[in-house]
Amino acid sequence: MEVLNSRAALLSNYEVFTLLRELETDHLARAKTAVRIKKEEEAAGHPPRHPGSDTLFGEPSENLRTVEVEAIQYLSADYLPTQRQTPEGISQLVQDLAPYELTKAEKLQVVNLAPTMPVELYVIVEELEDRLGDRMEEILTHVQSALALSPATIGPTSSNGNERHPPAINSDSTVSTLGGELAYPEDEAYHEEFVFDDVGEGAGVEGDLDMEDD
């Protein structure tokens, strides 16, 4: 294992929340198919399969399920605004915040915590009064309107239960809508251009992956 960049970009809570929810619906759908296939096979008189032989379509790893369920629980708590947010609302909010010269970290926290009271904004933005003066009320209004834009009726399990969403495809669209503004754009650009050429040890040697023999 090798860490190429431990902090390539910042993610908003909402992005993580949607990713985890997709993962969960995916798991649930797979679990259902697995049960169905098993039943069909039993009905057809096939011998039961060796348990654990197909990890991919059976139970996902315990660690993943634990962290997934607990993180979804935390992010959908009513003291966090994440569940009431939408991609449109967030990109609107980020646009609205542009003229206030907030740092990226501050913007990210405004999006993550959606402050509704001045005291919350004081904590997030350093030297709030010097930098913004009377304009902090405007920010609070922007936050409110961004939340109002969001329909509060997104259930914990969205309707796309049976569709398969490989994270690779979906995440790209999330990043392009949110990440460009929210995360570090320069780092994103750097990442996109980065060529991961495989010229390490063992390059060009067919079949040799310089693995330790253990």
């Binding site: 294992m1 090798e2 860490v3 960049n5 902090r7 390539a8 993610l11 809570n13 993580v16």
Partner: peptide, 16 residues
């Protein structure tokens, strides 16, 4: 709270 990290690893896929 959350960040993206770029990692590199060698992964083995079981024939099943």
């Amino acid at each position: 709270m959350f960040v993206l990290s770029i990692l590199k690893d060698t992964v083995a896929i079981h024939p099943s």
